[in-house]
Design a binder for these strands. Sequence first.
DNA 1: AAGTATTGCGTATTTTTTACGCAAAGCTAA
DNA 2: TTAGCTTTGCGTAAAAAATACGCAATACTT
Lengths: 260, 260
Amino acid sequence: MNQEALRTEVAHFLEFETQKMIPQLSIDCVIFSFHADKLKVLLLKGINQEKLNLPSGFIYQDENIDTAALRNLKERTGLDQVFLQQFHTFGKPTRYFPDQLQEAILSLGIDAKKADWLFQRFVTIGYYALVNYQQTNPQPSLFSEGFAWEDVEDLPPLILDHQALVETALETLKKDILTQPIGLKLLPDNFTIPQFHQLYEIILQRKIDRRNFRKKMLLSNILIPLNEQKAIKGHRLPNLYRFDEAAYALSLSGEVKMGF
Amino acid sequence: MNQEALRTEVAHFLEFETQKMIPQLSIDCVIFSFHADKLKVLLLKGINQEKLNLPSGFIYQDENIDTAALRNLKERTGLDQVFLQQFHTFGKPTRYFPDQLQEAILSLGIDAKKADWLFQRFVTIGYYALVNYQQTNPQPSLFSEGFAWEDVEDLPPLILDHQALVETALETLKKDILTQPIGLKLLPDNFTIPQFHQLYEIILQRKIDRRNFRKKMLLSNILIPLNEQKAIKGHRLPNLYRFDEAAYALSLSGEVKMGF
DNA sequence: AAGTATTGCGTATTTTTTACGCAAAGCTAA
DNA sequence: TTAGCTTTGCGTAAAAAATACGCAATACTT
């Protein structure tokens, strides 16, 4: 997008959209996917910014916050039916639009008074999404000029407290692994047990004996064998499975194990 | 408080305080305590309101949201060192100050224009607190005229979505029981195993064999026997214990059990 | 002194988790 | 062709945790 077109869009946003929105409150999305045996998070590159940022958005006055999060997610990924969970709200008093990005906006020739709406302190509601890497088609947002899927175990520098957001989202993912269909939402439709195993090791952040993992998953009856193998070079071919969604849901709805 | 004094206070709040605060964003606290073998939640009675409400508050522009929650909690309970956890943010577009309370405010002779700040849509950040019933000294707030500790299992009608807030807080409490020192924060300093057991049954919402509960807790080493009994009529006297806080903390910090 | 209710302590069984051996399958290199 | 390497798939055994439940001790009531 060229400078002039950007200026027009930003000016329009500040002139007509912001007045329909809740001030000082935003939504940040931590969008996870699983690709090449790694857990990835979608990041955007802000205009004139070195550091990357999470996709963000605002809330219309007549809009439910969950709906706003879904809308933002759709704008950013093109996806309609997304697994989305609120995980935490962040409200340090120093949460402002990054300085460099402020300068970039103003240097477009935007009315500073209008831009003030953006430059106030913002409290942000964090959501995490689980998406299928293959089906996702990321799009940069108004204030960004590119995107990237980054490995959660090797994140580049992020703006503001976005690093903390990702970490908190990961903690939540860890807690939710027994109660949410995380495998179903992150893995491709057809997957192997080793892939599933790898995903668990990343999320739980520890080694899990692969033979015990396999046994437990097979006994739980949530896997439907496809009688096909995945083509991989160098060794025995792993079997492909898909989830029995009903059985998966059932195995999750069971009471949280509490030691009693 | 008489009408005139209330009018003055509300007018002052709207004139001088609201302009230092984040608009359309509030904090609601679900304050739990344990008393007479029941889990209680602190509720306030709004002026002219039939239904009860949770203690609420607002956030100053230069204030961390967690700090704001603590401040509100202190104002409402007099407690300084409180266990407080954010659990969810609620944002239906129809979250407004209750109609009857709006009328009550306006009937004081408050400038309607000023009062509009209060009557906007509000998104609210939910926190839950665990307090020691004995040490708590609840105080009604600006817009309320009384308080009550109500049994979570038998709640009276609440305003807006406050019922949902309590339920979500309870769900969170259930999830947190293995990772947070819930017994320590809710039980009196000296307590019996049957009390602890009762608390667990209420939070987990199911029967737990009392003999297995006792065995597990004693083996976990978090209980220090006091060599005293609690005086209760009608049967054998239960032993009193206090928590070994370090051991309790240690038993919680352990990895979440995930079945692997 | 008998009856009732609750606490404290113990044993036995079942279920779940953990540890780990080993053959099968597919590729590579000699 | 075959030996070697790697990863997958399947199995057994031991350890740990959860569950079920019997029963005596204590304190009050009648």
